[in-house]
């Protein structure tokens, strides 16, 4: 069985350093935006959270492909944790974006803005992932069906992103473009350090949760071997994969 806790301490220190550096850059280095002023500082946390959550959903889909290809249920566990983490980051992105919208547009939510609505659709779709898993009792079927869900939903994320990019009418700012973006040097540096910090945070928390789940599974198996199957009550029905 793999050990996910390996290197977690070093990774945590690097993550903490990067996040603190990013916050220092945001508040003491990046210049104020000429149009938006201080509100634009929300951008350095909102955009990385949204990007990392969407990438996490795609990562979960890739791991689900690996699960279906190999039949190894550890990939199902990795996919489950990646989607679970992405959902948390996604909620963070949604709330911080809503706060920015209130400050900038005067509304918490704008229904005719494709970027916002499409992001909400993606999040609501993934919000059904855990109840969907929970509804299937047989662990084998649960893993397979959840992987199919993760692949289809994971493929929907980039398609959805492209569709929104092609939309003609939008009020949501387009900061990152194929032509290199509209950010001046210090703002770009701050943004990329923030993006790195949030990415590292995702990886650290993913590893942390994988280590916790792995330890719990190993302990249950040890208990079963020690006391025999009769004395262990069957594991409760759960949305989380059981190896």
């Amino acid at each position: 069985m793999p050990t996910y806790g390996k290197g977690l301490r070093g990774l945590s220190i690097i993550t903490l350093t990067t996040v603190v550096a990013a916050l220092a850059l945001v508040f003491f280095y990046a210049p104020l935006d000429a149009n938006q002023g201080f509100i634009q500082k929300i951008f350095y946390i909102h955009v990385p959270l949204a990007i990392v959550s969407l990438c996490g959903f795609v990562f979960g889909g890739i791991l689900a492909v690996m699960h279906l290809r190999t039949g190894d249920r550890r990939y199902d566990m990795r996919s489950y944790v990646a989607i679970h983490m992405s959902l948390i980051f996604g909620v963070g992105g949604l709330i911080t974006g809503s706060i920015w919208a209130r400050a900038s547009w005067g509304h918490w939510w704008v229904w005719n803005e494709p970027t916002l609505v499409s992001y909400l659709i993606v999040l609501l779709m993934y919000a059904t992932y855990t109840p969907f898993r929970f509804s299937i009792e047989d662990p084998e079927r649960q893993g397979r069906y959840a992987s199919v869900f993760a692949i289809v939903a994971g493929a929907f994320v980039p398609l959805n992103f492209l569709a929104v990019r092609l939309a003609q009418q939008y009020v949501h700012p387009r900061v990152l473009t194929l032509s290199g973006g509209n950010l001046p040097g210090p703002m770009a540096l701050t943004f990329y350090v923030s993006l790195l910090g949030v990415t590292l945070l995702f990886v650290t928390l993913w590893k942390y949760e994988m280590a916790a789940k792995n330890t719990r599974i190993q302990m249950r198996s040890l208990r079963r071997r020690l006391l025999g199957d009769d004395e262990i009550r069957p594991p409760q029905r759960s949305a989380a994969p059981s190896l």
């Binding site: 002023g37 509100i39 911080t96 400050a103």
Partner: peptide, 21 residues
């Protein structure tokens, strides 16, 4: 930091991030 008008929104966004963690 120019915390006058937009300060509460920026603080709110970062507090949400910290709270989630």
């Amino acid at each position: 930091l120019p915390l006058h008008a937009a300060g509460k929104y920026v603080a709110g966004a970062y507090v949400v991030f910290v709270l989630l963690i």
